[in-house]
Simulated scan of single mutants.
Amino acid sequence: MDRLQAMSMLIKVVEAGSFSAASKILNVPLPTLSRKISELENQLGVRLLHRTTRKLSLTDSGYDYIEACKRILEQVEEAESKAKGEYLEPRGDLVITAPVMFGRLYVLPIIIEFLSLYSNINVQLLLSDKNINLFEDDVDMAIRIGRLPDSTMIATQVGNMRIVTCASQPFLSDHPKIESPYDLTQLSCISLDTAMTTPYWSYHLPDSGLTAHIDILPRLTVDDSDSAVKAAINGVGITQQLHYQVKDAIDKGDLQIILNKFEPNKIPVHLLHKTRKYLPQKMKSFLEFTSPKLKSRIYDLSL
């Protein structure tokens, strides 16, 4: 039995929460996966997993063993990277993920500049508005906008992003003056329907210090910011977006920010990577190159 393979399979089963989910992720037949874990348990002489029809969980022995597995596999990966020279000089492949529009506008130009300086590094940029799992998809680093859940990953904050509400001037001219977030309940709105959005818009109430959640009635619902911005420019209604998503339209005069004094708290932007005692030079170089440039670009948004 390939002990390292079995360890990797065990970790994936626990991370995925079930054998069937892990089977799909690993592209390994379910009976094969189950047999490998059983063989590992037999070889160790202990049960690692509690298996029921509804739930899968680690035994006490399983908790200790899986932590040891993670350390061992990390050491093996580091040893292989060292053998390839990735710890001695910046070289190898990097997989980076970022939100679609932010990645296209801000991350891609930095990567192009980075590649011109590091000829031995290749980059794969995955643009997605879903939070790609760094472990399951073998991603080295992610740019995340929003508050991060507790995790073992390392986060480097590179700035904070405004959340703004805006509409076209013709739309605003055709409707009563908007003085409060509660006025939005009577107006046409354009909402986003993604895994990262909520059904309401949040606003800070400066007089009370409280946060108001406004249940809007959208005239139009879309699943990407580009479409929402275009619809707002064409007078369909009001939209709430991250500042970078509408900055170009605002600079051109196509959209106007409203309800400035009610803006919710800014949300953080991070560079995120998996926990590691030592970073390969390719990741260290990318992190050191990208962090100050993203900080500068995000700071410029607030001016």
Score class of each variant (00 low, 15 high):
residue 225 S to L: 10
residue 294 L to Y: 02
residue 20 S to I: 07
residue 241 Q to S: 13
residue 270 H to L: 10
residue 167 A to R: 03
residue 265 N to S: 14
residue 185 T to F: 10
residue 210 L to S: 14
residue 45 G to T: 09
residue 79 A to M: 03
residue 31 P to K: 01
residue 89 E to W: 14
residue 160 N to P: 12
residue 303 L to D: 08
residue 276 R to A: 04
residue 88 L to S: 04
residue 223 D to R: 12
residue 14 V to F: 11
residue 38 S to V: 07
residue 259 L to I: 07
residue 279 L to V: 06
residue 272 L to N: 00
residue 201 W to E: 07
residue 52 T to H: 05
residue 286 F to W: 11
residue 139 V to D: 00
residue 233 I to A: 02
residue 99 P to Q: 05
residue 186 Q to H: 10
residue 14 V to Y: 11
residue 36 K to V: 11
residue 4 L to E: 14
residue 50 H to N: 14
residue 130 K to P: 03
residue 284 K to N: 09
residue 250 I to R: 07
residue 94 L to G: 03
residue 257 I to A: 06
residue 43 Q to R: 10
residue 67 E to S: 06
residue 145 I to F: 15
residue 155 A to M: 03
residue 219 R to K: 15
residue 75 Q to V: 13
residue 102 F to C: 14
residue 39 E to I: 15
residue 56 L to H: 15
residue 239 T to G: 09
residue 175 H to E: 02
residue 184 L to M: 07
residue 301 L to G: 00
residue 251 D to S: 08
residue 113 E to Q: 15
residue 48 L to Y: 00
residue 80 E to G: 01
residue 153 M to T: 04
residue 135 F to M: 13
residue 134 L to E: 00
residue 237 G to H: 04
residue 123 V to F: 01
residue 165 T to F: 10
residue 79 A to C: 01
residue 239 T to E: 04
residue 201 W to K: 08
residue 272 L to T: 01
residue 56 L to A: 11
residue 280 P to V: 00
residue 239 T to A: 12
residue 121 I to L: 04
residue 110 I to W: 02
residue 281 Q to S: 03
residue 47 R to V: 12
residue 237 G to P: 08
residue 37 I to H: 11
residue 223 D to C: 12
residue 84 K to C: 06
residue 211 T to Y: 13
residue 114 F to T: 01
residue 211 T to G: 08
residue 174 D to L: 10
residue 256 Q to V: 15
residue 169 Q to T: 14
residue 182 Y to F: 13
